[in-house]
Design a protein around this nucleic acid. Sequence first.
DNA 1: TTAGTTCATCGCAAATATACGATTAATAAA
DNA 2: TTTATTAATCGTATATTTGCGATGAACTAA
Lengths: 122, 122
Amino acid sequence: MQRTLLTVEYSEEEESLAQFAKALSHPVRIKILKLLASRQCCFTGELTEFIPMAQSTISQHLKALLEAGLIQGEINPPKVRYCIDRENWLKAYAVFQDFFTPERVFECDCPMLTGDKSPLSC
Amino acid sequence: MQRTLLTVEYSEEEESLAQFAKALSHPVRIKILKLLASRQCCFTGELTEFIPMAQSTISQHLKALLEAGLIQGEINPPKVRYCIDRENWLKAYAVFQDFFTPERVFECDCPMLTGDKSPLSC
DNA sequence: TTAGTTCATCGCAAATATACGATTAATAAA
DNA sequence: TTTATTAATCGTATATTTGCGATGAACTAA
């Protein structure tokens, strides 16, 4: 894409949130995370038994989750054991919680929300 | 893309989470949400004064946020006033909170996390 | 009516994401 | 050594996302 205008600057928080969100932006990755977390222990390519997708596709999604830091993998040939990355899980939890904090929205006294029908005040 | 295998089924929760996450998966959309929420009231295309991007591009991102339900718009010609959609904001908050609940992860007694070096137990 | 303002939409180009089958690498088992 | 198993990676096709400028629609003000 062409970017003739100035480059937009983002804060670390904005980048971090967007990265975690991107990792969650496909339902199959959410399913994978839930499967990994719900098992009494972590497991490997048994994922392909639960999710009707090509092995290579699932491997790609696992890579995306790995790069986002939400899971970790331990090579145990010929298998690989994947597991939720607790530390980053909690970090993501905090990032989303901070962003969606209700205070952020309740501070806003937008006329549209309060029912004020006066002309634009902004 | 070809999808010769079975179609994967997703729960409503999985779809909903993925949709909210997709809306947040671009840092500029996060910036827009923060700007809308931080103003003492909601505002319109002043966004273009804060974000160095083409007006049409910002309009596209606003549309994405609208379709995700995170903001609402009120036509007030020739301006349009955008505002956080409180109801869905809180819904998204709940969806992320439910998903990332620490219990989900602390229930997992993966050997990888507990330090157990025994062979794969799953 | 005419001109100006605001913002959505269109049309296009480039980048990224998604999915698959085929292949390869690493290892264990026969 | 040979074979089997597991999972990553490669190559490719298609879909979606992202960005821009240009245009058009809706309304106000002159």
